[in-house]
Design a protein around this nucleic acid. Structure first.
Length: 584
RNA sequence: GCCCCUUUAGUUCAGUGGUAGAACAGUGGUUUUGUAAACCACAUACGUCAGUUCGAUUCUGGCAGGGGGCUCCA
């Protein structure tokens, strides 16, 4: 299948070759080359280098690249025989491996050369050229590349062909755009993203922390706990509205259950275990088997279906240490999970309800733009092919019925079933994977779940797994980054900060505080011996939605002075009036 | 887990082969303040275990934590 490549991806790909040439010039003939594709926003190339690479080297390489670009180097293409190719690249083990593969697939061997103009291409014996096995296409000449529109950004390790059994290569990443301005804009966006990093803001706002004693496990501070609980309350209310019944299941369950469910076989590298009285228990990485035990507690009638169990389920997954990333990738988290059991003919309706539910929730947080995917059967799976087709079709049908566009993510489904994934776009245009809806015909059968149908016959229900927020931890991380810490009023740990100007105003401030608290608001007084300006600054840094200033004037008029976080406006009003305003 | 980088006070950052300095935060005091940082004083740190060395926070190595990457395929 041939894809038409956009000009920018041709530029990016060409830059990766120029970088390879620069690396060869600087490090000599001993460099072994991996591959160097164009990627989103730039390119990379993988090498085995004779020495160590430091960030200063990036600078050098970049300079070398600029120099070459200005020389208007030409890219030239040639098709050669396998034998020729092997001879030409005899010192390049990775390339030889690729040539073997081309041979196996009966594909033509195409090489590209980029050489300095005074040498001319194909006089390879002279050196200074970089010849690479490459399907192309490339720019004709480096004059098509703006020397200021690219930047080498980082050095990383990457396994040859992405497989951890293969050797590790050094990967150099670069950013590249058509114009310098686009590069600058992108760098600005990255800077903005860095400012919004939930790990940084979480510390600044005193929401949560991580400790050496529990890598990957978040500790929630008082303020973070408020945020967490408000979100729990929210999702509980929404669940109730839609007919879910909340359950709670144990986090440690015997090995046998996990063997039966299929988790043992497919998921055990990610599970924690413990031994009690000589028996192996697993700490749950998912909530489904536990929920099924409740389902199986009694004989279910078709009249009960669809039966919707929701659970704020605490799960533990042993993620590799290298993939941990604050709250976005933690080893312990709470899913806003639910499992609904339905008859096959109820399935699409149930999925459609869940889609509505999810999109509705995202909208509340200002996530109006989203992409939808269907992730299909992975390599490790349980259940028959026919059932997978049926389940996947149910997901497709539901989306099509709702006229929602989707794309397929091949092989990215769960081991027990295909899923719909919602990817939302945040305030600065980044995508985040959120909720999922997963259809599962296998696990109910494996764990012996059934209901009695109209004809008095036993049937296996279809189980639909779904999470709207995904995990509370991850969702909070996304919210923090989306709002850059300025959480909406209802989620703010401290909603109102009251600042008496002098000692004489403290009593009135305390009255105001008491009334606000009586009305269910989270308010605080800062009566510290500091200037007003400083206390306002602290309140702003803490992203508190409202700051009330209390002084002579306010006491005299029996009013409060309200400073709003979002527009820094000031307004003199009565407390009643203010409560009414924020009450909605 | 693997590769590269990294770890100095609560935080952000200086710095040194002879055990460290700032800013903010903290504590005490002065000041009683009108919309994003008043003033003075005090206290607080070299992740951990080894090695090299007369001497290590500094150099080397192990371990632990943190950051980036390991999906994009000539």
């Amino acid at each position: 299948m041939k894809k038409v490549k956009s000009h920018i991806s041709v530029i990016r790909h060409s830059l990766s070759h120029i970088m390879a040439l620069a690396v060869k010039n600087l490090f000599g003939e001993k460099v072994k080359f991996g591959v160097g594709p164009a990627i989103e926003n730039g390119f990379y190339y993988d090498f085995v280098l004779p020495g160590k690479l430091s960030s200063e080297n990036l600078f050098q390489i970049e300079e070398e690249m600029r120099k070459m670009i200005k020389e208007n180097l030409k890219f030239e293409k040639k098709e050669i025989s396998i034998t020729e190719a092997k001879k030409m690249l005899k010192n390049q083990p990775f390339k030889l491996e690729l040539i073997e593969e081309l041979k196996k697939n009966k594909e033509p061997v195409i090489i590209y050369a980029v050489c300095p103009p005074e040498i001319g291409n194909w006089k390879l014996e002279i050196g200074n050229c970089f010849v690479d096995l490459c399907r192309g296409p490339h720019v004709e000449s480096t004059k098509e590349i703006a020397p200021g529109a690219f930047k080498l950004t980082k050095i990383a390790g990457a396994y040859w062909r992405g497989n951890e059994k293969n050797p590790m290569l050094v990967r150099i990443y670069g950013l590249a755009f058509e114009t310098e301005k686009e590069l600058k804009d992108y760098l600005k966006l990255s800077e903005e993203a860095e400012k919004r990093d939930h790990r940084k803001i979480g510390k600044e706002l005193d929401l949560f922390s991580f400790h050496e004693q529990g890598p990957g496990f978040a500790f929630w501070h008082p303020k973070g706990t408020i945020l967490y609980q408000e979100l729990e309350n929210f999702i509980r209310r929404e669940n109730k509205k839609r007919g879910y019944q909340e359950i709670k299941t144990p986090i440690i369950l015997k090995k046998d259950l996990w063997l039966d469910s299929g988790h043992w076989e497919k998921f055990k590298e990610n599970m924690y275990f413990t031994e009690i009285e000589g028996e192996v228990f697993a700490i749950k990485p998912m909530n489904c088997p536990g929920a099924l035990l409740i389902y199986n507690e009694k004989i279910r009638s078709y009249k009960e279906l669809p039966l919707r169990f929701s659970e704020l389920g605490l799960v533990h997954r042993h993620e590799l240490s290298g993939v941990l990333h604050g709250l976005l990738r933690a080893r312990m988290f709470t899913q806003d999970d639910a499992h609904t059991y339905c008859a096959p003919n109820q399935l699409t309706e149930e999925i459609k309800n869940m889609i509505d539910y999810a999109l509705n929730v995202y909208k509340i947080f200002g996530f109006d733009k989203y992409d939808v995917y269907i992730a299909t059967r992975p390599e490790k799976y349980i259940g028959e092919d026919k059932i997978w087709r049926e389940a996947t079709n149910a997901l497709k049908e539901s989306l099509e019925n709702k006229k929602i566009k989707y794309e397929i993510k091949k092989g990215e489904g769960s081991f027990y079933g295909p899923k719909i994934e919602f990817d939302i776009k945040d305030a600065i245009g980044r995508n985040w994977q959120m909720g999922t809806i997963q259809v599962d015909f296998s696990m109910p059968k494996r764990l012996g779940a059934f209901y009695i149908d109209k004809d008095g016959k036993k049937q296996n229900p279809v189980m639909v797994h779904r999470a709207i927020l995904g995990s509370l931890e991850r969702f909070i991380a996304i919210l923090i980054e989306h709002y850059a810490g300025s959480l909406p009023f209802w989620l703010s740990p401290v909603q109102i900060l009251i600042l008496p100007i002098g000692e004489n105003h403290l009593k009135y401030a305390e009255e105001i505080n008491a009334k606000l608290r009586e009305n269910g608001f989270r308010s605080e007084i800062n009566a510290e011996n500091e200037t007003l300006g400083k206390k306002i600054r602290e309140g702003e840094i803490q992203k508190i939605p409202y700051i009330l200033i209390i002084g002579e004037k306010e006491i005299k008029e029996n009013k409060i002075n309200v400073r709003k976080r979002d527009d820094k406006s000031q307004k003199l009003q009565t407390l009643e009036n203010f409560i009414e305003e924020i009450g909605n």
